[in-house]
Simulated assay, not measured.
Amino acid sequence: MKMSNVAGFWVRLGARLLDGLLIGMVVGTLVFLFQLDTSSQAVQTGESVVAALYFVLMPVFLYGYTVAKRVLNIRVVRKDGTNVGFGTMVVREVIGGFIYGITFGIALIVSAFMVGLREDKRSIHDLLAGTYVTYDRPEHWE
């Protein structure tokens, strides 16, 4: 199946930044309300866990959308156009993030170029998980 209406670099970057701001505001509010020490390992680990859960679970339950992706009308789908599942999102976000980390960000830079230059706009984490990002809406939303 041919991938359709693929989303490019800038809209994907914008969605990731907006989602990051949203997560930061939620965590920041909790830190403020509970007077937590932001330099503590527990707070930093908690923020990482919240972000990982957000990026894995939101697309599973919201047909490939996160909050920012919904605002920008893009979503993650499997290569065949079907909705992503939990395993797919774990590979995409957790394993992909691990690869970016162990390469000290070099693979992330390569991925940015891949999204900018490849015709299918797929990055390393998309190739690993068999996904792509599209402007197409879920079928039931028509």
Rank of each mutant, 00 (worst) to 15 (best):
T38I: 14
R118H: 12
I102G: 07
V115R: 10
F9E: 05
I102K: 00
G28Y: 03
V50N: 05
V77H: 03
Y65K: 08
V77Q: 07
G87S: 13
R70Q: 04
I23W: 00
G14F: 08
T103W: 08
V84K: 09
I99Y: 08
F113N: 02
L33Q: 11
V67T: 12
A68F: 08
R78V: 02
G64F: 01
E93V: 12
R70F: 15
L108P: 02
P59M: 04
V77L: 03
L30C: 13
G87Y: 06
V94E: 09
K69Q: 14
P59A: 08
K79Y: 03
G81P: 03
V49D: 00
G28N: 10
N5P: 00
D19A: 03
N5Q: 12
Y100Q: 09
R118K: 15
V50H: 01
R92W: 06
F86R: 02
N83H: 03
G105K: 07
I95C: 06
R16Q: 09
V31H: 06
G96E: 12
V56M: 09
M89C: 14
G105A: 09
F104K: 00
A42S: 11
F55H: 09
G24I: 07
F86S: 04
V43P: 03
T88Y: 06
K79C: 01
G105F: 12
L57Q: 10
N5G: 06
S111A: 11
M114F: 13
R75C: 11
G97K: 12
V90A: 12
L33A: 14
S4F: 05
N83E: 15
I74G: 02
L33G: 14
G116S: 10
A42W: 08
A42D: 09
V27N: 08
F104R: 02
V11E: 12
A52I: 13
V110H: 04
S39T: 15
M114R: 10
L57P: 10
T29H: 07
F61Y: 15
F61L: 15
Y100M: 14
K79T: 11
T82F: 00
W10R: 03
M114T: 05
R78N: 12
E47L: 01
F113K: 07
E119Y: 05
R75V: 03
V60N: 06
V77C: 01
M25K: 00
